[in-house]
């Protein structure tokens, strides 16, 4: 199962946050299933259409996902998926 790792910034909203392994075929699957472990976490990562929020990045390994609209990028069992916040604001 791919391993999901998170930006430290999400710990503010999920104080017990730690990396998890989730059975999933795509990034969209990963995000959807995160809600089972961390309620409402998907709403922090994607909008109600499932599109990645503008200032959030998801990497598979060291590569940013290609499909930020439907998160259809495939994930393999040995992948590490990183959910990060983009650098922005002030």
């Amino acid at each position: 199962m791919p391993t999901i790792k998170f930006t430290y910034a999400l710990k503010r909203f999920y104080p017990g946050l730690k990396e998890v392994s989730i059975a999933a075929d795509t990034v969209a699957d990963v995000v959807r299933k995160l809600d089972e472990i961390y309620p409402r976490m998907s709403t922090y990562i994607v909008d109600e259409r499932g599109a990645l929020r503008k200032h959030v990045n998801i990497f598979i390994g060291s590569t940013i996902i290609e499909d930020k609209i439907s998160l259809a990028d495939k994930v393999r069992d040995d992948d590490e998926v990183y959910i990060m916040q983009a650098l922005s604001g002030g």
Binding site: F13, D47, S88
Partner: peptide, 11 residues
């Protein structure tokens, strides 16, 4: 009390 947030990163 209600608070509406416009979080820059998380919606």
């Amino acid at each position: 009390w209600w608070a509406c947030q416009d979080h820059g990163h998380w919606g």
